[in-house]
Structure formats: C-alpha cells, structure tokens
C-alpha cells in the first residue's frame, strides 16, 4: 500500500469567459456576477482525485481539500469541487480581502494552508482565467518555503517525492522534488470528470469550513487593496472587433485573398 496523501487544491471562482467581462469593480476589478469554478482549476482537482484514488481514496485516509479565497459566491467553486469528488471544502472569505493582488492573495492563501496544516501537496491551475498572471503558485511556494513545479503536464508521487513532466518550446524536461511541494498543472495533464448524480448527492453531506482573516491570523492591513503591492490606475475597454468583408468562394477566393493581402501591404 502506498502512502496516503493530504492534498489541497486551490480553486478560484472567476467570471465566465463565455460572457463579456468588465472591469467595473472598485479599483478596476472584474465584475463577478456570472462566475464559475475556473475551468483550468478543474485539471488540478482531477489530478488530485486521481492521486487519491490510486491510494484507495477517502476510505484509506486520503484527503482532497478544495480551498477557495473569494467573496460569498466563491463558495460555489468549493461546492462544485465537492461534487466532483473533493473530500472537504474550505472557503476563505473576508471583506478585507477585496482587491487583493497576487502578492496579497498568496499571503492569505499561504496562511490558510498553514492553518489547515500537514499538507503533502498543493495543486493549482496553470493560471486563473481572469488574472492570467500565473504568479500565485510561485509566490505561494516562496512564502511557504516549498519547491514549486509549474506547468506540469504529468505528475506522479512515490515515496515522498514527486516527478513531473514539463514542456517548453524548445525542450521537454523531467523534474523531481521532495514533498511537500506546490504544483501547477496544465490542461494537458488529464480530462476532468463531470460531477455525476451520486457525486452531487454525496457533496451535500460533505463539510465546508469558512475561514476569516482572524481565523488564519492575518491582519486586514496585509491584504486587500491596502495590502497589495500593485495598483491599477486606469483601465480602458478596447473597441470590440467587428466583422469585415465576408465572401463565398466561387472558385477564385484564393486569388481574392491575395488581392486583399496586397491591398493591406501584407505580402
């Protein structure tokens, strides 16, 4: 029997990119009305579930804890994670967190992870689909003093060590690190499951712990807009692209395409 694992998966509640997204919030933050569990974080959750299941799942003592930091609605990202199979959920929420940048977010998440304690692995998505900075996993690793492996396209854990594959433009590589570690995964790593009926029913009995800043020992001044190390000073919406000329091929569309490129001085 392999060792049991305690895994925290970071799940963010983000505006659904299928709808128009706007920086209407205070300090040019995103409007969070139509929000969902960030689809890139589903890959991290699936990776965690597979690692746990390979070790006998929850019955054998493996834990997959979905942790989300965000306003009241963010609990929905935790609930969806429980439906997919996470064993428990944690929702870090506090009005003082509003407007946190990556540095403040990583500070709060690091404190929450220490508060939960005894973690073997922290799994995250490759980027949040709203912030798109990919800063949080590396900043979290630096704050927790842990190794980071970002953009993993495969991940195995054995005897207290992890092995991951990473693909760059000009090379692929294998990396190793001792646990505990912070790992961000790409959308190449697996195919996330959909919650099934059984999962949805089971999720109703799973517990969600709500944590405030006081619970994790973080001072309000360290986070939110005041605790952030960057500030957005202006934001302007780009005019949306509009459709141009559309033609139907009548046997000479390739020639017409070249005429268009020539007119645009693109040849």
């Amino acid at each position: 029997m392999e060792e049991t694992l305690k895994i925290i998966v970071l799940v963010k509640h983000v505006p659904d990119a299928q709808f128009d997204r706007h920086l209407n919030g205070e300090g040019y933050t995103t409007d969070r009305d139509e929000s969902i569990l960030s689809e890139l974080d589903e890959y991290a959750l699936e990776a965690a579930l597979q690692l746990a299941e390979a070790r006998g799942g929850a019955k054998a003592g493996n834990q997959v804890i979905a942790l989300s930091m965000g306003p009241a609605g963010a609990v929905n990202a935790v609930k969806k994670s429980l439906q997919m199979g996470a064993t428990e959920g944690v929702h870090l929420t506090d009005s003082a967190l509003a407007g946190s940048d990556a540095a403040a977010t990583s500070l709060a998440l690091a404190a929450a992870i220490r508060h939960i304690g005894g973690v073997d692995l922290v799994l995250t998505g490759m980027a949040s689909t709203d912030g798109e900075t990919s800063l949080v996993p590396a900043q979290l690793a630096e704050r927790l003093g842990l190794p980071q492996v970002t953009f993993a396209s495969s991940l195995t854990v054995d005897g207290g060590r992890l092995t991951a594959r990473r693909d760059a433009d000009t090379y692929s590589e294998t990396v190793e690190a001792p646990l505990p570690a912070v790992v961000s995964v790409t959308d190449q790593i697996n195919e996330p499951r959909y919650p099934n009926f059984k999962g949805i029913i089971a999720a109703k009995r799973k517990s969600i712990t709500t944590l405030s800043l006081a619970d994790i020992g973080v001072d309000a001044a360290q986070v939110g807009r005041s605790g952030s190390w960057t500030t957005v000073t202006t934001a302007a919406e780009r005019p949306p692209r509009t459709a141009g000329t559309i033609i139907t091929d009548e046997g000479d569309a390739g020639i017409k395409l070249v005429d268009f490129l020539a007119a645009q001085k693109l040849l």
């Binding site: 995103t30 190390w229 960057t230």
Partner: peptide, 16 residues
Amino acid sequence: KSVLAGSYTTAAKATT
C-alpha cells in the same frame, strides 16, 4: 498592459 484576453488596456503601478 492588456488584460481579460486583450479586451482592456490598463495602467498599473507598484506601490512598493
């Protein structure tokens, strides 16, 4: 920089 998949251009500054 631009954000939200190129739909906004923003100016940002470090406060540190």
